[in-house]
Write a protein that binds this DNA or RNA. Structure first.
Lengths: 205, 205
DNA sequence: TAAGCTTGTCGACCAGCGGTCAAGAAGTTG
DNA sequence: CAACTTCTTGACCGCTGGTCGACAAGCTTA
């Protein structure tokens, strides 16, 4: 008679389900506008069970972030034989395409970056990205001004993308050109112009 | 015999005292690592009294922010007769000097910008700053790509300053040159090169 | 069919948060 | 010394992230 009060699932199945749901929800609400209780409610489980699979909210967010990052990485695989500027151009284009497919989620993710508990994680992601670019610049990549310029440009990138998402009055190509030109300008300004031997993509206008 | 359980103060005196204390504490801990209870404790009053003077934590933060901004504005008064690029150069230099005097507090303030309840306020501040720069650029300031470039550069500015504060291996002049050069590069890349008739300051070599 | 066991699952709980309220006490006025 | 203003407080609320012991789903064994 009595139906089971809940359906029991395999550990890995449940975990994957929760992760997927959390990814969607974080992308919809952002980190701090989404509570663990709400995630549990949406997934129709108790909050305690959510904590059984993920030890904390920040770790759950990191897991969701990592899942998204893996997806992105696949899209932005680069050819190490290309000159640095061309690598940046190609990767940037793939990246913009990826953002274009989930503009809301990307914006929420950028917002979430400011939340206290995940700040360190996001800073690390940025540091790794910057490190990759700097490594591709050769000896110039070790100069403090160039390091600051790359960190600055990564922030430039996110801010310009947010503006693009918010206003929607630029084509992706236009944005791409502006970003690439700014990248070149930042490198030049940092004194790393020598690394820009190959064409970095023309600025429109 | 019985000493008073607390000392009563004039409304304005208390308010000014609390605002000053809050400014220090926000600068030391940032927005979300600092609770209203903690502020009250540090100021040796009850939390309820703090709420009597400031209706919410975010409003208290905004008041503290505005106080700092007023200080900053006085330091960065600009001469509207100068060409735009020179205005930016001079303002930027004054701004860097201001940051240099309170590096920790400025870093905490940038961190705080990501907190949920103050995000809108910080976005508004940035929008006003961007608007001022764009207005100084003439007709170019109305182009979407230029708008995105200015927003991007403001983010660049903050990120580069954070890097500067964190590593401390650049002189202020070096940073100033890199920032100005990047500003020019971003404008060029957005197609607003015409606005850069006057020297924007040389990039270091 | 039923007992035994593993472990997925839940309700109840905790300290702390931002925020609110009626009541009390400090200090001034008649 | 009483009356009054208003600055100040302790107790409270709903919610958050997070923890814990106990229940029960459903497989294994007999």
């Amino acid at each position: 008679m009595a139906e089971p009060a809940y359906r029991r699932m395999q550990s890995e199945e449940r975990r994957a389900l929760l992760l997927e749901r959390a990814q969607e929800l974080f992308g919809e609400y952002g980190y701090d506008a989404l509570s663990m209780s709400q995630i549990a409610r949406e997934a129709k489980i108790s909050k305690a069970l959510l904590y059984h699979y993920f030890p904390s909210k920040s770790r759950l967010f990191e897991a969701a972030l990592a899942a998204g990052a893996a997806e992105l990485r696949e899209r932005t695989k680069l050819d190490p034989a290309l000159p640095p500027a061309a690598q940046v151009a190609a990767t940037l284009d793939a990246f913009l395409g990826w953002v274009q497919e989930r503009p809301g989620a990307y914006a929420k993710m950028l917002e979430s970056a400011g939340a206290r508990e995940v700040r360190a994680t996001m800073a690390q992601v940025r540091a790794e990205t910057a490190g990759q670019i700097l490594a591709g610049l050769g000896p110039d990549g070790e100069r403090p001004a160039t390091r600051a310029a790359i960190f600055g440009w990564l922030a430039f990138l996110d801010a310009a993308i947010l503006d693009w998402i918010e206003h929607g009055d630029m084509t992706r190509e236009e944005l791409h050109g502006m970003l690439l030109g700014s990248f070149a300008g930042a490198l030049m300004a940092s004194g790393a112009g020598a690394a820009l031997t190959a064409a970095a993509g023309g600025a429109p206008g």
